[in-house]
């Protein structure tokens, strides 16, 4: 590679779902294209690519972020968790089961981002009101199920984690 293009690429090392990953990336590649194309972790979805729809929401260093609004180079050294890692670890198995039970997904396109957002809410607020749930997922668009069942699922999970009749 010639010198002129070296500032267009960068070597990055990050931890994705606990695995150490080193790659050379084009600096203009955003995090979700990196995850999907380079690592073939296609659970993180791309909708609008302007931060509005929330389908690309992943966890970086413990907090939910828009994967389309972060460059892969910015994640150099970071711990990234995608829906694949969150599923495999079982960390949100109850939330996923509630989504299933409540029919809180149909096509599933928004679901990975929705789960990351919901998990962050439940970690910070064990007893959110329905309004708080709606406000928190306001940046995650669903175009088929509708939000009512999603709010139900999140509310059900919160109640179950508090030990208040989770089966609902």
């Amino acid at each position: 590679m010639d010198g002129a293009s070296m500032d267009r690429v960068r070597d990055v090392t990050l931890w994705v779902n606990g695995e150490r990953v080193s790659r050379r990336v084009a600096v203009r590649t955003h995090l979700v294209d990196f995850l999907r194309v380079e690592l073939e972790l296609t659970g993180s979805h791309l909708g609008c690519e302007q931060g509005v729809c929330g389908a690309c929401t992943v966890r970086v260093d413990g907090v939910a972020v828009r994967g389309c609004l972060m460059l892969a180079v910015q994640a150099d050294g970071a711990r990234v968790e995608t829906i694949e890692g969150l599923s495999d670890s079982g960390a949100i198995a109850d939330l996923q089961a509630a989504f299933h039970a409540r029919n809180a997904l149909q096509c599933g396109y928004c679901t990975p981002g929705m789960l990351v957002s919901a998990a962050e809410l439940l970690a910070a607020n064990p007893a959110p009101t329905r309004d708080e749930i709606r406000a928190h997922i306001s940046g995650n668009y669903c175009r088929c199920t509708g939000y009512h069942a999603i709010v139900d699922a999140i509310e059900t999970t919160a109640a179950a984690r508090r030990g208040e009749g989770g089966a609902a």
């Binding site: 590679m1 267009r8 690429v9 084009a26 203009r28 180079v73 150099d76």
Partner: peptide
């Protein structure tokens, strides 16, 4: 091609340099 900034797929951002 992608690494050299001549993406054959749909990379969306224009080419730019990056410094940290």
């Amino acid at each position: 091609a992608r690494i050299q900034g001549e993406d054959t797929r749909k990379v969306k951002a224009p080419d730019f340099a990056y410094e940290r």
